[in-house]
Design a protein around this nucleic acid. Structure first.
Length: 421
RNA sequence: GUGGAAUUAGCUCAGUUGGUCAGAGUGCCAGGUUGUGGCCCUGGAGGUCGUGGGUUCAAGUCCCAUAUUCCACCCCA
């Protein structure tokens, strides 16, 4: 077999598909209860959207995008993340004239050209939420509250919320200057990446993983101290609301996040169960994004949650959703009764029951084995004898107990059996 | 983009210093029981040993390249 799924992609088989469907349904339900509407954007966009929206200094834009020229010569990129695309829709569809704030959620697959690792794929799925049109810390808190609700409904316990504020463009300018002043004397001791970050985005020098750089960064000016009065007030209000919602959080002054559009609040839910990167969910405020994309001065805040990482987390905590249950009843038949068996199965299925029947033309013995392997609860043999009398014996496979039942009463029998469980 | 490990049947894996090494378990199909599941017994299908080169009388086995997967770095969900 030479043909394989492309590197970094996965096949989702029935058991996992069922689990994912349940997660999707829980998330959709919670979003609806919080007043969010679903949005589905195109799988690909003009490359320029991500270059401007996500930002040229981010790794996503620099080296992880699936970009190609289409037959019309347009530069197209498979979406590497959701926020820029949803923001584009906001502008294009004139959502600034909708009742404000506009609250949207999505469930979309994302594409990033990366090396494979635990919890990391070239195609992966994100659940996400965005609130456009509110500058208030109440919006930040509501989003984190929504996530907290989601995790609680799934039973997740071990994740930790980390939060930080990286300030607004105004205090960022002062802060970046302060950082450069601090790091400049140490530059020759730091890694090549940090030297590059010094020019482009000195904030990210704070969370460099190189030991030497970390040692130097320890005494760097802290982001929270550098915030302007408005940003300080905003951040304090966010944490106050989190306390009111009884959501535990952990200040992480090193938390910066690599997408260029973030302002003020940034946060992540982390866990040790999803590989060393640890992040299940990340988000923050992006007050300048809509303007950057040609819309008005509309603030925004949002998050994205990695579904594959969520599944890893649920598995580690023994919380995976149930997979499909086997059919309730297997109808065994013979050549002479195959038509009647199909008819009976269809009738019961149309009444709402889950029914299996032979579609291979197997011997009765093989059908019994097949039914057993499927894990069905009951089995009936529909032969000429049974058809003649209009009565079948319903056998319960768990203990072999048999009960006679008129063919016309089979639906009622199954209904009673179902409700008895 | 950098570094490390791995790849043999659908799945989990044996396979010694190159020489009956194409294997086991499990799963699948059938039969034993021509109209009755599980346990048991028997048989069957399924692999160009990731791919391509090289060394050799002889290569899952040694060498090189490459692909894929896993792990870590970077970064992100």
């Amino acid at each position: 077999m030479n043909l394989r799924a492309p590197k970094g992609t996965r096949d989702v088989l029935p058991d996992e598909a069922t689990m994912r469907r349940k997660l999707e349904s829980i998330f959709a339900d919670i979003c609806a209860r919080y007043g969010f509407g679903e949005i589905r954007t195109p799988t690909f966009e003009h490359t320029e959207l991500f270059e401007r929206g996500v930002g040229g200094s981010s790794d996503i834009v620099r080296k992880e995008m699936y970009t190609f020229l289409d037959k019309g010569g347009r530069s197209i990129t498979l979406r590497p993340e959701g926020t820029a695309a949803v923001a584009r829709t906001f502008v294009e569809q004139g959502m600034s004239s909708w009742a404000s704030p506009v609250k949207l959620w999505y469930n979309l697959n994302m594409f990033r050209y990366e090396r494979m690792q635990k919890g990391r794929f070239r195609e992966h799925t994100q659940f996400g939420c965005e609130i456009f049109g509110s500058e208030s810390p109440q919006a930040d808190a509501e989003l984190i509250g929504l996530l907290d609700t989601f995790f609680k409904e799934l039973g997740i316990k071990e994740t930790q919320l980390q939060i930080n504020s990286i300030g607004c463009p105004v205090c960022r300018v002062d802060y970046e200057k302060a950082l450069r002043d601090y790091f400049r004397p140490h530059l020759d001791e730091m890694c090549v990446d940090c030297v590059e970050r010094f020019e482009k985005n000195p904030l990210r020098m704070l969370d460099c993983k190189v030991t030497k750089c970390q040692e130097i960064a320890v005494d760097a000016p802290a982001p929270l101290d550098a915030l302007c009065e408005d940003c300080k007030k905003h951040f304090n209000a966010v944490t106050t609301y989190l306390e009111a919602l009884e959501i535990p959080y952990c200040l992480n002054l090193r938390l910066v996040r690599g997408l260029d559009y973030y302002t003020r609040t940034v946060f992540e839910f982390v866990s040790h169960n999803v590989g060393t990167q640890g992040s299940i969910c990340g988000g923050g405020r992006y007050d300048g994004l809509i303007a950057e994309l040609g819309g008005g001065d509309v603030p925004g805040v949002g998050f994205a949650l990695g579904v594959e990482r969520l599944l890893l987390e649920l598995q580690a905590q023994g919380l995976l959703p149930e997979t499909d249950v086997p059919p309730l009843l297997y109808i065994a038949s013979f050549d002479s009764t195959a038509a009647e068996a199909l008819k009976l199965a269809q009738s019961l299925i149309r009444q709402g029951f889950s029914i299996a029947t032979d579609v291979v033309g197997r011997s009765l013995r093989a059908q019994m084995k097949a039914a057993d392997r499927l894990g069905v609860t009951y089995i009936v043999v529909l032969g000429d004898l049974e058809l003649e009398k209009g009565i079948v014996d319903v056998r319960r496979l768990s203990d072999g107990e048999e009960k006679s039942c008129a063919l016309t009463e089979l639906g009622a029998f199954l209904k009673a059996a179902e409700s008895a469980d």
